[in-house]
Nucleic acid binder design. Sequence first.
DNA 1: CGATGTCTTGAAGCAGTTCAACCAGGGTGG
DNA 2: CCACCCTGGTTGAACTGCTTCAAGACATCG
Lengths: 242, 242
Amino acid sequence: MDAVRKDIYNSEIPDFCRDCGARLGGVCGALTPEQLTEFSRQTSRKVVQPGGELHGQGEPVHSYANILKGVVKLTKIMPDGRQQIVGLQFAPDFIGRPFSIESEFSAEAATNIEVCALPKAALEQFVNNISNFGHRLHKQALNELDDARDWMLTLGRKTAREKVATLLHLIATHIAPDKSEVLHFELPLTRQDIGDFLGLTIETVSRQMTKLRQEKVIHVENNRTITVHDFGRLADIAGIDG
Amino acid sequence: MDAVRKDIYNSEIPDFCRDCGARLGGVCGALTPEQLTEFSRQTSRKVVQPGGELHGQGEPVHSYANILKGVVKLTKIMPDGRQQIVGLQFAPDFIGRPFSIESEFSAEAATNIEVCALPKAALEQFVNNISNFGHRLHKQALNELDDARDWMLTLGRKTAREKVATLLHLIATHIAPDKSEVLHFELPLTRQDIGDFLGLTIETVSRQMTKLRQEKVIHVENNRTITVHDFGRLADIAGIDG
DNA sequence: CGATGTCTTGAAGCAGTTCAACCAGGGTGG
DNA sequence: CCACCCTGGTTGAACTGCTTCAAGACATCG
């Protein structure tokens, strides 16, 4: 780490960050190369398997993380076991409630994920010393708030059919490789996860997926690989736009 | 405004703010007396009738406001008229999406309200010049996010009975005068509003209220005045805690 | 005192749940 | 290599909680 390699194009950026997909987005986009170096010294890359917990509901938050790859689900669970996913996060989102208090939900890997974790103390140091850093976190919170409110409309007022279409639309816009009319992607969620996100049972989710398949709105392979034939049609069914 | 009256107890606080219930909470709590004076110079008090809009869905945000009194509902509406309340705000909450872009929902007075409105330019000035100000806004956003996610669980996984109890619990904790076991308050929402908040029809809301009344969990006068006899029982029915 | 808006109550219908059986893929071990 | 199971998904049939539609009660206000 002392002998920093340099090249013409990325002269000051630390090795550690050079190949990172999240470098320009999320909180890291706020950092100068020197700050990035300092940042990278305090963080550690972690790989987490599906189902692995980043933090549990009711636990104090002691660590934060930047998602580099994969999907993280935020879930709430009631004492009797009923479960609700209250947020999905994709690269380069930031995980963890700043100004701690204990977490009101658990954060769990939905797919294989790769994160850049940093301890609470480091986060606080960055917030205090880097002017843009707090601002970036604020913006992320506002985005999550907008997403949460969109989803409240989905949960409260949409039919099962619209809900499933809305979910597919959401996933597609976040992880599909291109923005053409025909989209192709891997579902990062199980049917159970989808049910828990939409406030439905797995059976209802399955039935609605089957219907969309029969109507040729989507094509499904191996239960997880989805092709959307007509993105506009999907948005229409989801009740998005006017 | 030039001849500032002073008294022994509130020497530097502007007249304008002296009787304000929100002075110590919300964003104003971050301000020194001098800043408060500057702040008060840029703001104007407004009274809004129930149904009055602070800003509409899809409009650019050009004004912000601090709630001094009353309740504001944030609502989303679909092209076909289906409606969902995505947030309730009480004094001393702050209204308006910082870093504008257009608003994704409308903010509307649910009761008679009194607000302290300030233009976008003034907000930006405060964010840039007062170090705590942005931090307060950030905290407010995080609180709203926690609230939104709590509500997602309510919308997605609770029964009609639990939903109604959850709403009563929410209102009670926000506007009830004291924290004793027996609570007494005015409902700031119509049955339609309650339905739009809970993702239910007004008929279902009414039926569940009747049931809670018959079970002596609550007492209702004039459809709007509620007495909660046993707060713990209400929380229990709402599925809150363990 | 009728008129209007808000809330309640009842009865019928239906979207989504529940319960149960079945199916496909992917180990594992005899 | 097949028998076995185990997990995740689908499909069917019966049920039910909420909605829908319709009528009535209550309060407020010209």
